[in-house]
């Protein structure tokens, strides 16, 4: 899937030799949001080739980087187009762009702009000065909410296989016919898998600041256990048939295990987790998650055949 604009120099409004030069990635959403945030101001937009990746991720990979910026400045003949020698690079381009190297190689001084393009107008109007809050990357509730669909799509790719499989396995063994078993035990398995995804990939991101613990896998445990308790309550009260032996313990183990794993994966979407921290968290969490997952599945398969 390609959602890109061609790299190079673009004019926004009616820029002249004195207009600011703003650098961005060739991800079309970045490009459009920068244009929109200028709100009628005239500017040059220098678009780097990042293969349609946003500024922060591309800077981490190095494709939004010193070399690419210098080559684009030269390729656009920027020194003939503007009379000043300043390019405004988004602050989150910092991991890839070394300002002192750009200056040495191109003669252009890099001024790091605000984290959010919504602050660009105020940044320019203030004489290319960022207020302290413009330099901070937050992770507020709305920022977490918009990431949930990404987490769900990833989880549902696996669930698309697991859900039909568990439903059909639910039909095996047990007291009744295949389809009546599937509609009892298989359907409850489907509800539990969906519940685990909701706990780990929806509730955990929303409740993130308020969940106890710092490790994401630990944070995901609370919604996972709560979800398991609610589901077991449903299974033992209003569900059409009584639970099979081992069925309850199976889901009490498996739902929290899935939730904590999915919560751990939200580190990739977050704006403040370090690689050293994620590795430390995983050294403890993964050796617990894998046996719990295996034990949960084994218990449930056992529940299909235990009499």
């Amino acid at each position: 899937m390609s959602y890109t604009v061609d790299p190079g120099l673009y004019a926004v409004g009616q820029p002249d030799a004195g207009s600011p030069v703003l650098v961005t990635a060739n991800y079309k959403m970045s490009f459009d949001r920068v244009r929109r945030s200028l709100d009628g101001r005239n500017a040059w937009l220098l678009v780097l080739e990042t293969d349609g990746i946003n500024v922060w991720c591309a800077a981490g990979k190095g494709s939004f980087g010193t070399n690419e910026l210098v080559l684009r400045i030269e390729g656009a003949r920027l020194e003939q187009i503007v009379s000043h020698r300043r390019v405004v690079v988004p602050q989150l381009g910092g991991p890839g762009v070394a300002a002192h190297e750009v200056k040495a190689r191109s003669g252009f001084r890099v001024t790091f702009g605000p984290v959010r393009c919504e602050d660009l107008g105020r940044f320019i109007d203030a004489g290319f000065k960022a207020a302290p809050e413009m330099r901070r990357k937050t992770f507020d509730t709305w920022e977490r909410l918009v990431l949930i669909p990404v987490e769900l799509v990833d989880a549902l790719k696996v669930a698309a296989v697991a859900v039909p499989l568990f439903f059909l396995l639910g039909g095996l063994g047990g007291p009744g016919t295949f389809w009546s078993n599937a509609l009892n035990y298989g359907l409850f398995a489907v509800v539990c898998l969906v519940g685990a995804i909701v706990a780990g990939a929806v509730l955990t991101p929303i409740l993130l600041p308020w969940l106890p613990g710092r490790a994401f896998s630990l944070k995901g445990l609370i919604p996972g256990i709560a979800m398991a308790v609610v589901l077991v309550g449903l299974r033992t009260s209003v569900w059409a048939s009584p639970p099979a032996p081992l069925e309850i313990p199976a889901w009490l183990v498996l739902v929290p295990a899935l939730s904590t794993y999915l919560a751990m994966n939200f580190t990739g979407a977050s704006t403040f987790t370090s690689l050293s921290g994620v590795k430390k968290e995983m050294r403890i969490a993964v050796p617990l998650q894998i046996p719990a997952g295996v034990a949960g599945v084994a218990l449930w398969i056992g529940s299909r055949f235990a009499s």
Partner: peptide, 11 residues
């Protein structure tokens, strides 16, 4: 700093 992405899936 030993830089990298703090992403469990990447690990």
């Amino acid at each position: 700093v030993q830089s990298g992405v703090g992403c469990a899936m990447a690990v």
